[in-house]
């Protein structure tokens, strides 16, 4: 696994997210119109190229999971658009309706976080993996069986035949997550949203799942949106990383660039907090205040202002900063990027 270069910018992106919004109403009662909204996702734009893996990183409650759910149509956005292109197939995800849904489902899949909850305990591995084929009426039972065996082999569950009719509880967490990968790939999708697929696994098992996903993604030409809170994991999975904070993307860029040269104060704090498996390494701490809050009717200024150690008047007086280019394909949403750079350099 070498650090992949950003994919060529020719052609159109596979997924084109524009001003995506998800505002959850806070219900006040049956007959009263809600006045408060949680701005879970608040106007994010993001392109994912064919074959590219993008990491969506942030703390819980930052809106990364909602974004993923909207991409696979488990949730309808309240604003903005998601354009999905797969060869000649071109659809606005929100507008896929009725009989078109099954066709869409064959192209976009999802891997879930919890290997203990993402499989029906009463269905066998065969039923679980072949479910997309079964509900979409693809193949005969014998053909499905053949396809499932092929996939089990592919995800490294061998001998495949011995896994076919086991129940999820007979498998370990790592094995289950391999089954989840197989299920996501059974219809040959072009785009897979992976929502923290390794966070519930032991550290020792994470790597093999990550490698499996990367390898299969490359071999089968699958793009991933990899949702995680763990930058170390994102480093090994993603070509690019987008850092989210309270419904906004605050920084986006190639993975190694973000890790080596973080610009946004939140990214800096996030990076300094990641535990390092090396006690000899002392890292400069970046202190930020308090914890993440819910974005209920947020004020217009920068979302990070309350926790930002670098907040200044410019941040108070202006609306949430737009993403501005700060290097090769590196975008940051902060008014004080240059000042912070020089301040931290002076400090160290």
């Amino acid at each position: 696994m070498t650090a992949t270069l950003p994919p060529p910018r020719t052609g159109e992106p596979l997924v084109e997210i524009r001003d995506l919004e998800m505002h959850f109403p806070i219900s006040k009662g049956l007959f009263r119109a809600p006045t408060d909204f949680v701005h879970a996702v608040d106007g994010i734009s993001l392109d994912i190229a064919p074959g590219e893996s993008v990491g969506l990183v942030g703390e819980s409650g930052c809106g990364k999971s909602s974004t993923g759910r909207m991409l696979v149509k488990l949730m309808e956005p309240t604003g903005g658009s998601i354009m999905f292109r797969d060869g000649d197939y071109q659809r606005d995800v929100a507008k896929v309706k009725g009989s078109e849904i099954k066709d869409f489902r064959a192209r976009v899949q999802m891997i879930f976080q919890d290997p203990y909850e993402s499989m029906n305990p009463r269905r066998t591995i065969f039923d679980t993996i072949s479910e997309p084929m079964a509900v979409q009426g693809v193949g005969s039972v014998a053909e499905r069986e053949e396809r499932v065996l092929e996939l089990l082999q592919l995800v490294g569950l061998t001998p495949a035949a011995s896994f076919l009719f086991r129940y999820p509880h007979e498998l370990s967490g790592g094995q289950r997550q391999r089954v989840a990968v197989a299920r996501a790939l059974v219809m040959n999708p072009t785009f897979v949203v992976a929502d923290e697929p390794t966070s519930m696994l032991d550290v020792s098992i994470r790597i093999s799942i990550m490698e499996l996903m990367t390898k299969l993604g490359r071999d089968l030409g699958v793009s991933y949106l990899y949702i995680t809170h763990d930058l170390a994991v994102a480093r090994y999975m993603c070509d690019r990383i987008a850092v989210m904070y309270l419904g906004k993307i605050v920084e986006i860029g190639p993975t190694e660039e973000i890790l080596a040269n973080p610009k946004h104060p939140y990214t800096r704090a996030l990076l300094s907090a990641v535990p390092v498996p090396d006690p000899a390494l002392k890292r400069p701490p970046v202190e930020i205040k308090g914890g993440i809050s819910a974005a209920i009717n947020p004020p217009p200024e920068c979302r990070f202002i309350q926790r930002c150690p670098f907040a200044a008047q410019v941040c108070q007086e202006n609306p949430h900063p737009p993403l501005e280019q700060q290097g090769d394909r590196h975008f940051v949403a902060c008014y004080r990027v240059d000042e912070i750079d020089s301040e931290t350099e002076a400090a160290s």
């Binding site: 029906n120 479910e131 979409q136 989840a180």
Partner: peptide, 17 residues
């Protein structure tokens, strides 16, 4: 609320499925 329900929907399963 279990994620296998979401998984079934992503697989293309309708409400009754």
């Amino acid at each position: 609320v279990k994620s296998y329900i979401d998984a079934a929907r992503v697989a293309g399963g309708g409400h009754w499925h």
